[in-house]
Design a protein around this nucleic acid. Structure first.
Length: 607
RNA sequence: UGCCUGGUGGUGUAAUGGUAGCACAGGCGACUUUGACUCGCCUAGUCAUGGUUCGAAUCCAUGCCGGGCAGCCA
């Protein structure tokens, strides 16, 4: 768990939020920077959350601060413990080696304790960052851990005459609220006495009233142009079991009330969230202001969320794809969930570079998926070992090699390495090549194998095509070639040039492996605008083939990334691989200008 | 018709009163035992109109266009 050194020459990100943090620090408004990432455990994290994590963790990291992982679990109806574990794993994966030393969790079982600061009542809970405590003794913060503190704060608001118990039904509450362009009306229960409010609120807590019968509301301004200031609800009654607190509570705080106070309780200094919460900020500030709190108050700043073409990131839509079986689960490699992305073989660093590069602004932008793909290839190109694999095989017979004869060849593991290593691979009489790499009737500018043509087998030698053998149906069954063994590395004609170099795998030594070729899940760049998402699901987003790979790949393990030369990057699937029997996921293809070159040649040569 | 926010090449993002730059995408070329990588070159932008100023993407005014907000969701 060491911090990754900042890339040489990489400028420190600068944006309006970082400017605000720097100015707060300069003015000594806070002793240290504390940010937070507060997901609701009602689904898996996706790449949009990834951006929020990168911003919150990144700012903590740049200021030697910490960032709290908190489950925003105030709604028992929608949340599940299963999601908590997935969220923790995804966050840790995303920041490993980068900001994990800033990640702050709390001691198991810890709760904020009431105490007095400068004569004022307070609740405070500080966690442990990095490895200050053994991981087994830590857990994420939970808003539900603050229910007692939140209840006490609510009592304070009632005593101050800033909150009241309202008996309006949900429908009536809605009607009384008015509309953005017309003021609301005051609830008939708005002027109850403090004593009555206290009594009713306590009875709400003890379970005397059914769901929806009463609420606790703040008393602000029913005529405010900001609808979120029209006496917003603080508590609702829900006789439901909560995944953390069980049946201890039947009243649950709402987001606006719980969030600002959770931030305060944890000592958060900068609460960074997405733009849709901007209209809630006056309420965030109002609640904290009323309570006359002894410690510095947190402040909320909003940034534009990450939206990427061909991806959907709404939990509703994601859940639907999962439930309807369009994908195999939350971690389907085609999904932009962090679990899916990880399973697909995309490095966390690529996600971070993408998220950070998207910037921190207040403009709702749509980032092209090509940028993400660029970052994926950039990382994988540097780190992936090269291997030979054939996805759609066609057989070549090297007629001048004897059956059983092997010609040892040396292959480079990673040409991008400063000190490249090599491995041995065997050329045999029969090898598979990619069916795309042979064309009986080649288009113009076709560099690969064709009747009477020559091509180099990568790391081996140049071969000449002599004869094409077909079955009764006219399908090519084998291509008979001669190997020019003196064009191997180190031989007399090693420097002989041919236009094309192709990959291959020995028929006798190759291993068959299930390989999953993933493509974009949607056929249109902005699927979220669709009436029905399923209309634009790409029917070819997953194709499964039996690939033939070089023998060393039999031992590939999940977590390892390979470049199958000329094809793309592949990684063993973490769920379906077994020792000695990997199942490969294609992370992404190599950039391919072949199509363009051939198409262009075709265009030029046609009338 | 209310309030809050925004508007810089195709896309994303810098420039904080002083030469509009970077990245992705696109185009052309070089290199190449990956049609990859790498390298070079090119295309293309300040929403509009006024104003302030020696000088405006930046400040002011007006207009236009976009996004968000009316859950007992977060």
């Amino acid at each position: 768990m060491t911090a990754e050194p900042a890339p040489a020459g990489a400028p420190t990100p600068s944006d309006f939020i970082r400017d605000a943090v720097a100015s707060d620090l300069a003015a000594k408004r806070h002793a240290a920077v504390v940010t937070r990432f507060p997901p609701e455990p009602n689904g898996y994290l996706h790449i949009g959350h990834g951006k929020a994590i990168c911003i919150n963790a990144g700012i903590a990291r740049e200021n030697q601060g910490r960032f709290n992982l908190r489950m925003d679990d105030t709604n028992p109806a929608k949340e599940e413990a299963e999601y908590v574990d997935a969220i923790i794993a995804d966050v840790q994966w995303l920041i490993a080696g980068w900001a994990d030393h800033c990640l702050c969790l709390q001691e198991k079982g810890a709760r904020p304790v009431a105490h007095t600061v400068n004569g004022k009542a307070d609740f405070h809970l500080v966690g442990a960052a990095g490895q200050a405590k053994a991981a087994a003794l830590l857990e994420p913060f939970h808003a539900s851990n603050y229910f007692d503190a939140l209840y006490e704060f609510a009592l304070t608001l009632i005593r101050q005459g800033k909150a009241y118990v309202c008996d309006l039904s949900p429908k009536e509450t809605d009607e009384y609220r008015g509309a953005p362009d017309k003021p609301g009306r005051e609830s008939p229960y708005r002027h109850r006495s403090v004593a009555e409010n206290l009594d009713l609120f306590q009875r709400m807590k003890t379970g005397e009233f059914p769901d929806g019968a009463r609420t606790l509301r703040s008393k602000i301004d029913m005529a405010s142009p900001n609808v979120w200031l029209r006496d917003p609800l603080l508590y609702r009654i829900r006789h439901a079991s909560h995944h953390q607190t069980g049946d201890r509570w039947c009243i649950y705080p709402l987001y606006d009330y719980a969030h600002c106070l959770s931030d305060y309780i944890e000592g958060v200094t900068h609460s960074l969230c997405s733009l849709e919460f901007t209209v809630h900020r006056p309420l965030y500030d109002w609640i904290l202001e009323q309570l006359d709190l002894p410690r510095p108050r947190p402040h909320q700043y909003e940034f534009a969320k990450l939206i990427t073409t061909y991806m959907i990131t709404s939990k509703r839509n994601l859940l639907r794809l999962v439930n309807e079986g369009v994908v195999s689960g939350w971690d389907d490699p085609r999904l932009p969930t962090l679990s899916g992305i990880r399973r697909r073989g995309i490095p966390a660093s690529a996600v971070r570079n993408f998220a950070i590069g998207a910037g921190v602004t207040k403009y709702d932008s749509v980032t092209e998926i090509a940028v993400f793909e660029h970052h994926i290839r950039e990382e994988l190109n540097l780190s992936s070992a090269r291997r030979l694999a054939v996805l759609r095989p066609v057989k070549i017979v090297l007629t001048n090699l004897a059956p059983g004869e092997t010609v040892e060849c040396e292959a480079t593991n990673n040409p991008q390495s400063d000190t490249p290593t090599t491995r041995k691979i065997a050329l045999t009489r029969e090898v598979f090549i990619e069916s795309d790499d042979f064309a009986e009737v080649p288009p113009p500018k076709y560099f690969r194998l064709k009747p009477g043509g020559e091509v180099r087998l990568k790391y081996a030698c140049i071969i000449s095509c002599q004869e094409v053998v077909k079955d009764a149906a006219g399908a090519v069954t084998e291509i008979r070639c001669t190997a020019q063994l003196d064009t191997r590395a180190g031989q007399a004609n090693a420097d002989k040039k041919v236009k094309g170099t192709i990959h291959w795998v020995s028929v006798s030594q190759g291993v068959s492996v299930e390989t999953r070729l993933y493509d974009r899940l949607f056929t249109v760049p902005e699927p979220w605008t669709a009436e029905d998402l399923r209309t634009f699901v790409n029917p070819r987003s997953l194709e499964t083939v039996t690939a033939i790979v070089e023998p060393s790949l039999r031992d590939a393990r999940p977590g390892e990334c390979f470049q199958f030369e000329r094809l793309g990057y592949f990684t063993p699937d973490a769920k379906d691989s077994a020792p000695g029997r990997p199942v490969f996921n294609r992370t992404i293809t190599l950039k391919d200008t072949t199509i363009k070159a051939v198409a262009k040649a075709g265009t030029h040569s046609s009338p």
